[in-house]
Amino acid sequence: MHVLLVEDDVVLADGISRVLRASGMVVDVLGNGSEADSVLQRAQVSIVVLDIGIPGLDGFEVVRRLRQRGSNLPVLLLTARDAVHDRVHGLEVGADDYLVKPFATAELVARVKALLRRSGSANTELQLGGLTVDPFSKRARVNGKSIELSAREWAVLEYLLHQASRVVSKQQIIDAILPWGEELTLNAVEVYVSRLRMKIANAGIVIRTIRGFGYMLEESKPDA
Protein backbone atom coordinates (compact mmCIF):
# COMPACT_ATOMS: atom_id res chain seq x y z
CA MET A 1 0.00 0.00 0.00
CA HIS A 2 1.36 3.37 -0.99
CA VAL A 3 0.77 6.23 1.43
CA LEU A 4 1.33 9.88 0.57
CA LEU A 5 2.00 11.78 3.79
CA VAL A 6 1.74 15.58 3.59
CA GLU A 7 3.11 17.05 6.81
CA ASP A 8 5.51 19.95 7.21
CA ASP A 9 6.67 19.12 10.72
CA VAL A 10 9.79 17.06 10.04
CA VAL A 11 9.80 15.17 13.34
CA LEU A 12 6.14 14.19 13.11
CA ALA A 13 6.45 13.28 9.41
CA ASP A 14 9.44 11.07 10.19
CA GLY A 15 7.62 9.38 13.09
CA ILE A 16 4.48 8.71 11.09
CA SER A 17 6.48 7.29 8.16
CA ARG A 18 8.39 4.96 10.45
CA VAL A 19 5.20 3.68 12.02
CA LEU A 20 3.39 3.21 8.71
CA ARG A 21 6.41 1.53 7.13
CA ALA A 22 6.55 -0.82 10.11
CA SER A 23 2.97 -1.79 9.19
CA GLY A 24 4.18 -2.75 5.76
CA MET A 25 3.25 0.37 3.83
CA VAL A 26 5.27 2.42 1.39
CA VAL A 27 5.39 6.05 2.49
CA ASP A 28 6.29 9.20 0.57
CA VAL A 29 6.51 12.47 2.45
CA LEU A 30 5.80 15.98 1.17
CA GLY A 31 5.89 19.15 3.24
CA ASN A 32 3.93 21.47 0.99
CA GLY A 33 0.32 21.64 -0.17
CA SER A 34 0.99 22.86 -3.71
CA GLU A 35 3.55 20.11 -4.24
CA ALA A 36 1.07 17.56 -2.90
CA ASP A 37 -1.55 18.88 -5.30
CA SER A 38 0.69 18.42 -8.34
CA VAL A 39 1.99 15.02 -7.21
CA LEU A 40 -1.59 13.81 -6.74
CA GLN A 41 -2.35 14.74 -10.33
CA ARG A 42 0.10 12.20 -11.71
CA ALA A 43 1.25 9.69 -9.08
CA GLN A 44 -0.83 6.65 -8.10
CA VAL A 45 -1.14 6.31 -4.31
CA SER A 46 -3.53 4.28 -2.15
CA ILE A 47 -4.23 6.89 0.51
CA VAL A 48 -3.32 10.46 1.50
CA VAL A 49 -2.57 11.45 5.09
CA LEU A 50 -2.87 15.21 4.98
CA ASP A 51 -2.13 17.89 7.55
CA ILE A 52 -4.45 20.91 7.29
CA GLY A 53 -1.91 23.56 8.30
CA ILE A 54 0.74 23.15 5.63
CA PRO A 55 2.57 25.75 3.52
CA GLY A 56 1.32 26.39 0.01
CA LEU A 57 -2.25 25.20 -0.47
CA ASP A 58 -3.81 24.19 2.83
CA GLY A 59 -5.12 20.69 3.46
CA PHE A 60 -8.75 21.64 2.75
CA GLU A 61 -7.82 23.05 -0.64
CA VAL A 62 -5.77 19.99 -1.58
CA VAL A 63 -8.76 17.73 -0.82
CA ARG A 64 -11.16 20.04 -2.62
CA ARG A 65 -9.06 19.98 -5.79
CA LEU A 66 -8.61 16.22 -5.53
CA ARG A 67 -12.37 15.69 -5.35
CA GLN A 68 -12.93 18.20 -8.13
CA ARG A 69 -10.80 16.00 -10.35
CA GLY A 70 -13.21 13.18 -9.54
CA SER A 71 -10.79 11.14 -7.45
CA ASN A 72 -12.20 9.00 -4.65
CA LEU A 73 -8.77 8.39 -3.12
CA PRO A 74 -9.15 7.99 0.67
CA VAL A 75 -8.02 11.07 2.60
CA LEU A 76 -7.22 11.18 6.33
CA LEU A 77 -6.91 14.74 7.60
CA LEU A 78 -4.60 15.63 10.48
CA THR A 79 -5.50 18.76 12.39
CA ALA A 80 -4.00 20.62 15.29
CA ARG A 81 -7.30 22.44 15.71
CA ASP A 82 -10.12 20.36 17.05
CA ALA A 83 -12.70 23.03 16.32
CA VAL A 84 -15.92 21.43 15.18
CA HIS A 85 -15.77 23.85 12.30
CA ASP A 86 -12.51 22.33 11.05
CA ARG A 87 -13.89 18.86 11.28
CA VAL A 88 -17.14 19.62 9.56
CA HIS A 89 -15.38 21.63 6.91
CA GLY A 90 -12.88 18.83 6.35
CA LEU A 91 -15.59 16.26 5.83
CA GLU A 92 -17.59 18.68 3.69
CA VAL A 93 -14.77 19.26 1.24
CA GLY A 94 -14.45 15.52 0.87
CA ALA A 95 -12.04 14.09 3.44
CA ASP A 96 -12.94 10.59 4.64
CA ASP A 97 -11.71 10.85 8.19
CA TYR A 98 -9.78 13.14 10.49
CA LEU A 99 -7.47 12.82 13.47
CA VAL A 100 -6.73 15.53 16.01
CA LYS A 101 -3.07 15.91 16.93
CA PRO A 102 -1.55 14.52 19.05
CA PHE A 103 -2.83 11.00 18.43
CA ALA A 104 -1.72 7.52 19.38
CA THR A 105 0.15 5.87 16.54
CA ALA A 106 -1.98 2.75 16.94
CA GLU A 107 -5.04 4.84 16.22
CA LEU A 108 -3.42 6.39 13.15
CA VAL A 109 -2.48 2.97 11.78
CA ALA A 110 -5.96 1.60 12.52
CA ARG A 111 -7.63 4.53 10.77
CA VAL A 112 -5.37 4.27 7.74
CA LYS A 113 -6.01 0.54 7.49
CA ALA A 114 -9.76 1.04 7.92
CA LEU A 115 -9.80 3.63 5.13
CA LEU A 116 -7.80 1.31 2.89
CA ARG A 117 -10.20 -1.51 3.61
CA ARG A 118 -13.21 0.62 2.87
CA SER A 119 -11.77 1.95 -0.34
CA GLY A 120 -10.70 -1.48 -1.55
CA SER A 121 -13.02 -2.98 -4.10
CA ALA A 122 -15.94 -4.88 -2.64
CA ASN A 123 -14.29 -8.12 -3.62
CA THR A 124 -10.98 -7.55 -1.87
CA GLU A 125 -10.30 -9.77 1.11
CA LEU A 126 -10.29 -8.08 4.50
CA GLN A 127 -7.78 -9.30 7.04
CA LEU A 128 -7.18 -8.48 10.70
CA GLY A 129 -5.18 -10.62 13.09
CA GLY A 130 -5.96 -14.23 12.25
CA LEU A 131 -9.29 -13.34 10.66
CA THR A 132 -9.76 -13.16 6.90
CA VAL A 133 -13.09 -12.39 5.29
CA ASP A 134 -13.95 -12.51 1.65
CA PRO A 135 -16.80 -10.09 0.90
CA PHE A 136 -17.41 -11.66 -2.50
CA SER A 137 -18.02 -15.19 -1.35
CA LYS A 138 -19.18 -14.02 2.09
CA ARG A 139 -16.87 -16.54 3.70
CA ALA A 140 -14.67 -16.02 6.75
CA ARG A 141 -11.62 -17.94 7.94
CA VAL A 142 -9.94 -17.95 11.34
CA ASN A 143 -6.30 -18.95 11.10
CA GLY A 144 -7.08 -20.52 7.72
CA LYS A 145 -10.09 -22.53 8.95
CA SER A 146 -13.52 -21.67 7.62
CA ILE A 147 -16.20 -20.62 10.09
CA GLU A 148 -19.94 -20.77 9.57
CA LEU A 149 -21.81 -17.44 9.85
CA SER A 150 -25.47 -16.57 9.41
CA ALA A 151 -26.29 -13.70 7.08
CA ARG A 152 -26.90 -11.30 9.98
CA GLU A 153 -23.74 -12.41 11.81
CA TRP A 154 -21.83 -11.91 8.60
CA ALA A 155 -23.19 -8.39 8.19
CA VAL A 156 -22.34 -7.45 11.78
CA LEU A 157 -18.80 -8.86 11.48
CA GLU A 158 -18.17 -7.10 8.18
CA TYR A 159 -19.36 -3.78 9.61
CA LEU A 160 -17.27 -4.14 12.78
CA LEU A 161 -14.25 -5.04 10.71
CA HIS A 162 -14.71 -1.99 8.51
CA GLN A 163 -14.95 0.11 11.66
CA ALA A 164 -12.07 -1.67 13.42
CA SER A 165 -10.61 0.25 16.38
CA ARG A 166 -13.69 2.46 16.44
CA VAL A 167 -16.48 2.43 18.92
CA VAL A 168 -19.79 1.82 17.19
CA SER A 169 -23.16 2.02 18.89
CA LYS A 170 -25.69 -0.77 18.63
CA GLN A 171 -27.96 1.58 16.73
CA GLN A 172 -25.19 2.30 14.25
CA ILE A 173 -24.81 -1.43 13.67
CA ILE A 174 -28.54 -1.82 13.10
CA ASP A 175 -28.63 1.16 10.73
CA ALA A 176 -25.67 -0.24 8.80
CA ILE A 177 -26.80 -3.84 8.35
CA LEU A 178 -30.55 -3.47 7.86
CA PRO A 179 -32.36 -2.27 4.79
CA TRP A 180 -34.53 0.76 5.53
CA GLY A 181 -37.86 -0.05 7.05
CA GLU A 182 -36.81 -3.27 8.75
CA GLU A 183 -36.62 -3.43 12.51
CA LEU A 184 -34.14 -5.14 14.77
CA THR A 185 -33.96 -4.89 18.53
CA LEU A 186 -30.81 -3.87 20.38
CA ASN A 187 -30.97 -7.22 22.16
CA ALA A 188 -30.71 -9.03 18.86
CA VAL A 189 -27.45 -7.19 18.15
CA GLU A 190 -26.13 -8.43 21.49
CA VAL A 191 -26.98 -11.97 20.52
CA TYR A 192 -25.16 -11.73 17.17
CA VAL A 193 -22.10 -10.22 18.81
CA SER A 194 -21.88 -12.89 21.49
CA ARG A 195 -22.13 -15.60 18.83
CA LEU A 196 -19.45 -13.87 16.78
CA ARG A 197 -17.19 -13.73 19.81
CA MET A 198 -17.31 -17.48 20.20
CA LYS A 199 -16.71 -18.09 16.52
CA ILE A 200 -13.64 -15.83 16.22
CA ALA A 201 -12.30 -16.61 19.68
CA ASN A 202 -8.87 -17.69 18.48
CA ALA A 203 -8.32 -15.06 15.81
CA GLY A 204 -6.35 -12.62 17.98
CA ILE A 205 -9.25 -10.22 17.78
CA VAL A 206 -11.46 -8.89 20.57
CA ILE A 207 -14.89 -7.35 20.34
CA ARG A 208 -14.91 -5.08 23.33
CA THR A 209 -18.26 -4.22 24.93
CA ILE A 210 -18.87 -0.65 25.91
CA ARG A 211 -21.65 -1.11 28.43
CA GLY A 212 -24.88 0.57 27.45
CA PHE A 213 -23.42 1.89 24.22
CA GLY A 214 -21.93 -0.52 21.74
CA TYR A 215 -18.83 -2.38 20.65
CA MET A 216 -15.33 -1.98 19.36
CA LEU A 217 -13.48 -4.60 17.37
CA GLU A 218 -9.71 -4.51 17.56
CA GLU A 219 -6.66 -6.67 17.42
CA SER A 220 -5.90 -7.98 20.87
CA LYS A 221 -2.54 -6.69 21.98
CA PRO A 222 0.15 -9.33 22.45
CA ASP A 223 1.16 -7.96 25.86
CA ALA A 224 -2.36 -7.49 27.16
Partner: peptide, 20 residues
Protein backbone atom coordinates in the same frame (compact mmCIF):
# COMPACT_ATOMS: atom_id res chain seq x y z
CA UNK B 1 -1.88 25.28 22.93
CA UNK B 2 -2.67 24.65 19.27
CA UNK B 3 0.89 25.17 18.18
CA UNK B 4 2.19 22.81 20.86
CA UNK B 5 0.11 20.03 19.41
CA UNK B 6 2.18 19.35 16.31
CA UNK B 7 5.54 19.04 18.10
CA UNK B 8 3.83 16.97 20.81
CA UNK B 9 2.39 14.71 18.14
CA UNK B 10 5.87 14.34 16.65
CA UNK B 11 7.38 13.52 20.02
CA UNK B 12 4.66 11.04 20.86
CA UNK B 13 4.92 9.28 17.51
CA UNK B 14 8.69 8.97 17.78
CA UNK B 15 8.64 7.63 21.33
CA UNK B 16 5.86 5.20 20.52
CA UNK B 17 7.88 4.01 17.58
CA UNK B 18 10.88 3.49 19.84
CA UNK B 19 8.73 1.60 22.31
CA UNK B 20 7.45 -0.76 19.65
Amino acid sequence: AHQLRTPLAGLKTQVEWLQQ
